[in-house]
Each structure stands twice: as structure tokens, then as C-alpha cells.
Write a protein that binds this DNA or RNA. Sequence first.
DNA 1: TCAAAAGTGTTAGATATACACCCATGA
DNA 2: TCATGGGTGTATATCTAACACTTTTGA
Lengths: 255, 255
Amino acid sequence: MVQEREPPGSHGSQGSGPQGAPPAIAVSTVIFALRPEGDATGSTPSLWTPFVLRTREPHLDRWALPGGWLPGGEELESAAARTLGETTGLHPSYLEQLYTFGGVDRSPTGRVVTVVYSALVRTDEVEQAAPGENVRWFRADRLPRLAFDHNAIVDYALERLRTKVEYAHIAHSFLGETFTLSQLRSVHEAVLGQELDAANFRRSMAASPEIVATGELMAGTPHRPPKLYRYRNQTHATRHRDAQSENPTAERVRP
Amino acid sequence: MVQEREPPGSHGSQGSGPQGAPPAIAVSTVIFALRPEGDATGSTPSLWTPFVLRTREPHLDRWALPGGWLPGGEELESAAARTLGETTGLHPSYLEQLYTFGGVDRSPTGRVVTVVYSALVRTDEVEQAAPGENVRWFRADRLPRLAFDHNAIVDYALERLRTKVEYAHIAHSFLGETFTLSQLRSVHEAVLGQELDAANFRRSMAASPEIVATGELMAGTPHRPPKLYRYRNQTHATRHRDAQSENPTAERVRP
DNA sequence: TCAAAAGTGTTAGATATACACCCATGA
DNA sequence: TCATGGGTGTATATCTAACACTTTTGA
């Protein structure tokens, strides 16, 4: 990349294609959280995502992903975390880059290249956050017609989440610091949309060194109290591969 | 994304962060090809990648990934294919988006967000292409100190290629229209850097519906002639998930 | 007929899947 | 004591990995 470059400020012929103006860079985030199914408590949870109501053209009055323009001095991931926090009040427990959408005709008002992030937030975080007036949650599999190409983006994020939850340990990001294996299983079931064998799921998780028992039990259950587990932050000595602290598989876990 | 937007042309406060100037968008491509090991023919092939010599500051005289600024009217993938063609003369048989690198301090002359693509080219394509004066190939695992953060980018692309070759059918992109299972195996071995059991590899490939026998045999071998296979372009009815023809898992296969 | 690579067969071990069954607690 | 989810055991099917062995050609 960056074959040549004028001094900053004078952007020379950079990006001056047939359309004239250089592309603008935006950052957006698809946020996933687990919420109880209906109004009745105790039912199986399902995946929900928050959207922001657009208050101006284009796509006025349609729901859109939280996001905003990328400031010149802000990191991509930081901009994603900031913009999603400003609009929804949420603090993600997991945040990773998903894909960059740059279709020429994505926006009717000009070329926009959007770096999309995928975020997971804990259920308790959702409950205590104060969402803005123009924020509404929708079931991830029952979306309205969104602004721009955001329907396709969410669909892709959902697909990625489903494949990734099977080989990466990200399900715990939906839960609190400690959790039971049943809770973890219900996360997997909600994401995958299918029931899992409790016995086999338990074994496969217990086999992983990332999931460790705390030694404590959960109290207050109307039956046998389950063991509590914790996700072990894998040595945190994961070789970093980028000299400029840009890690393609970065993961932020909330303290 | 795209919460609000002035009319194109007047970019308003878009991207006007602490650093002032809005970020520039570049597109770069990590190109992989299989080349014979040493000068001796017949030895096991290895992975090579081409780089372009920088002819100006910053990072003058260092090798860099092929790429360039994104024109306002060009698709991301198109820009990747064009810039890699202009510099190396190559036509990729596979091209997919890898990751977007946007670290604030990636370039000493200003903020640059680079959408990086990963490309595979066939061996015969490499042989017939006329590379420019300032293009040189290096073994992917023996790189010099590259410009910017390109060492980290290539390392990441290599890691992705290794993991992806195991579950996705992309190895054939290094070969011609038809190929023997031995050739395909040697591709996997070169990418993974380890030998594979010929018998088991054959079975696992034959089990896949994507790999089909043409019915013909390869002639001119000094031993038993092997069957030729072809990659079946999986129905090409892969559900597209993006209304604006932007497919996160797009794949271009050369005719 | 020999070398070399193509291609098939077989088996032990590991992993996945289904499901029977016991355990510990609150009500 | 009973209902309920927590947790263990176990048998079967499937997949994986290792390697012996047969086949087919050119030299």
C-alpha cells in the first residue's frame, strides 16, 4: 500500500477518480446481546441487536447501525467503541473487526468506505445501560428494513458469529465474570439456534483449558447448585504480530 | 454507520479529529504464488510474494506491498486487482479481502487506512507475466524489512492462508484448470510447511464434491499416469448476502 | 524387470453423538 | 418425597492417522 504520498494536508491526486471527491471513512459496529425471549422470564434467550434511528437524509427515519466518521487521530477500534458507546451507552466485552464495506453505491450522497466491527455485550451491561431516545433493539433474525446496506452487514455478522462461536471462546463474553456451564450452553444454543446435548457440551468445555472452575457454587437455585466457571485469559502472552500494536485478532475483555 | 453526511464535495466536519486532515484510504494486496525451491527443478515448491521498491519517501528504497490510493469511483476489490496488475503484471486467480489496517502511526506522513487484500496466482501466470523493474519476489517466510507495517501484514496473510487452506478449497487457485491430486497435495504441503500422507490426502479430497475427476490422465510422466481433476465451481448459486453486490466471501476464479 | 509415483486396503486410536442414569437441592 | 436441573457413565458411530500393499507406467 501507500506507494507514494504527498505531505499531509495537501492531498494531491489522492483518490481523485472519476467521481472526483475522495472516499470518506466511517466506522460502524454490529452489537450482539442476549435477551430473554418474550416478556415471560425464564424462557430461552435469543440474540438482539440495537439500532439508531436516522434523523436526516439519506434514509431518514430508518434504523441504522451505530457508528460515525473516523476522526483523523483516532484508532479504528477506538472509534468503534466510542461511537457505539455514545449512542447506545453500552460497553462491549468483546470487539473485533468484521469486514470493510466499500461499494461505490452504498450511500446515495457519496462514496463511503465503512470499517465494520462486531461487538458482544453482557446481559447485565444491557440492563444497566441507558439507551438514547432513538435507540431500539431488534431480534437479530427479525430485522426491519435498515438504512443503507446494513441488513446485509448484520446478516454477515450473524453468520460470522455462528461459525466463530464453535471454534473460538467468545460465548462467555455474553455472560458475567463467572458463569455456569448451563448458562454458557444456553448462549451457544441461542447463537446457533439449536439445542445442544448438555452432557456432551459440558465435556467439551471442561476439556478446554480456557474454561476453569472457580471452586464456588451458584446459590439460590431451586435445585442442585451448579459449579461456577471462569474464562482464563489465556496467558495473555498471545504473540503479537504487529509492530504498530494492530492485532487482527485482538480481543478486549472487560475487567 | 453513516449517521449523518453533508452533501458530497463539502465534507463538513467529517474526519476532522485532533489531527486535522481526514484519513486517506489505500488498497494493498498480499500476493502469494508457488515457485520451485532452489534453482534445481523438481524440488518441493515454496510460497513467494512480490514486492515493489519504493522510489520516494517515506521508506525510500524499501520493499512494499503493491497497492495505491482508492479512487472515488472504484470498487475496493477492483482497485486491488488493478494496482497489483499495474505493478506486477499479474492476474490473480483468487482475491479476497484480508483485513483493514488503520493504525494512527502506520505512516509517518499522515493517517492512512489501508484495506488489504490477499491474492493467489497460478504458477504459469507468474511465468508469463512481465514484472516491472522495481518488482522482486521474496520467499514468504524469509522477508527483508519491508516498508511501513507490511511485515506484520504479510505475516497475518500467511497465517490466514494456512488456516484457510485446511477448510476452504483455495489450493487449486495456485494450479491450472486441471491438476493431479499430487499437485494439489504439494500445494498444501508448501503452504502448511509440512508433508502430508498421500493416501489420506487423496481420500479427503475425493470425498469432497468440489473436486471432480475429468476422466483424463496426465501424459508424459515417467511412471504411472495420474488422473486429472478439476474444481467444480460450486453451483455458483452461493446465496449472495448483499444487495449492493458486495460479498464478504467473494471469490474470483480465472476462466 | 526395476524404479517411482499412483492408487487401494486395513487398523488402532481419537473424537463425536446419543442417551441412560445418579446426585443434590428447594419446595 | 418429588420435581428439576446438575453432573457422570457408557456404548456406538464416525473421523483421523499411520502404514502396508497393489497397480501402472517409462526407462
